[in-house]
Simulated scan of single mutants.
Amino acid sequence: MSKEALLVGQEAIARKGWIGAHRFLLLRRASQLGFLALFVAGPWFGLWIVEGTLAGSLTLGTLPLTDPLVFLQSLVAGHWPEMTAIIGALIVVAAYALLGGRTYCSWVCPINPVTDAANWLHRRLNLPKGWQPKRSTRLWVLAAALIVSAITGTIAWEVVNPVTMLHRGILFGMGFTWAMVLAIFLFDTLMARHGWCGHLCPVGAFYGLVGSKSVVRVSAKARAACDDCMDCYAVCPEMHVISPALKGKDGDTPLILAPDCTNCGRCIDVCSENVFSFTHRFDDTLAEPSDHHTPAPDPQTA
């Protein structure tokens, strides 16, 4: 195992403490568990706060929410949804257009902890990068799902969608779903680093398109303080989005504007120099190193 694989985030832990260096990871897990708890409260405990699944739900008997990709597949399949489904889809699209479409991937999707665990194990075992299909592959899968829906008159992707299968499995019994989850875990661990979410999943591709002009963004505002430790690249599920903001020349925006960014916040967590922060797409200011850099304590004098 390489030294780098063992030391990712250690400087941040030394400066911020363990919780500070895992703040957004912990918040994401709380968010994912919170959404799941809302859905399971009804079937498990009779507390019907939310009825349905991530594909379509009704909150407190009033607020409809519809997966816009399911809605789009329904349209191309020739089925005009009810008004509540239309309203629900518009609400979800508006929310993720503001927050960043792939925020869904890192803060809501139940498959995300599986792929995060696979990436952690991949790094711990110091495995090679593996097979890396083009990132555009997920756009082709998205197009194929819509075409198949149009031809068959069905919501085609939902038949095999691991997100829907896992969510329903948690609610009503896993069955074969365990095999699907295990396959994704092994694929990301042994065959392709960040393979499922980063290269194949059409849901992520769709939400990336929805949030391409979103307001909430991560900024490498203090990039002058970067010490090239590369920890942000090690933990980022879409590491190619970092360089334009972090390594940009004078005059280049420090904002991560690529729609592939999941707004997971892990780059913020693991950076001991506090280079990254959440902001909005209209804030392209840069900070001087002295504004953010705090010298590490000398272990000989601590």
Rank of each mutant, 00 (worst) to 15 (best):
T189R: 01
G195W: 02
D252Q: 09
A287C: 11
Y207C: 02
G211R: 08
L286N: 00
C264L: 03
E238P: 02
G251Q: 02
V216A: 08
G198D: 03
D252H: 09
M239R: 15
C267L: 08
D250H: 06
P259A: 12
P259K: 13
L257D: 02
N274I: 15
N263S: 12
A234K: 09
D250Q: 06
H280I: 12
L246F: 09
F206C: 02
D269T: 12
H199R: 15
A224E: 05
I242K: 11
H194W: 13
C236G: 04
G195V: 13
P254R: 09
D283K: 10
G204T: 14
H199G: 08
T253L: 03
L255G: 03
D269M: 11
C197E: 02
C236Y: 04
L209E: 01
A245C: 10
P202A: 01
V203P: 00
N263T: 12
L190A: 08
V215A: 08
A225M: 04
R217M: 11
Y233G: 00
V216N: 01
S219F: 05
A205N: 04
D227E: 05
V218K: 11
F276Q: 11
D252Y: 05
N274H: 12
G198V: 09
F278C: 09
L246H: 07
V241K: 10
C197V: 10
H280P: 05
H280R: 13
G198E: 01
A192C: 14
A225D: 00
H240D: 15
C267S: 07
F278M: 09
C232G: 07
A222I: 08
S214K: 10
G208A: 10
E238H: 13
V270Q: 05
C201G: 03
I256Q: 11
A224M: 07
C264S: 04
R281T: 07
P244A: 12
A258G: 12
V218S: 07
F206D: 00
A258W: 09
P244L: 13
D283M: 11
A287K: 14
V216S: 04
S243Q: 10
T285G: 12
T262L: 11
R266A: 10
G251L: 04
K221R: 15
W196T: 04
L255E: 00
A225V: 10
N263A: 11
T189W: 02
F206G: 00
S219G: 13
A220Q: 10
L200A: 05
K213A: 14
H280S: 15
S219K: 13
R223L: 09
A234D: 03
G208H: 06
K221P: 08
A225S: 10
C261H: 08
P254E: 03
V235R: 01
A245P: 06
F206N: 00
V203I: 08
D252E: 08
D269L: 13
D284M: 03
A234P: 06
R223K: 12
V216C: 04
G265Q: 09
Y233H: 07
Y207T: 09
M239D: 12
T262V: 10
A222N: 14
A222S: 14
P254H: 05
N274D: 15
D269E: 05
S212V: 14
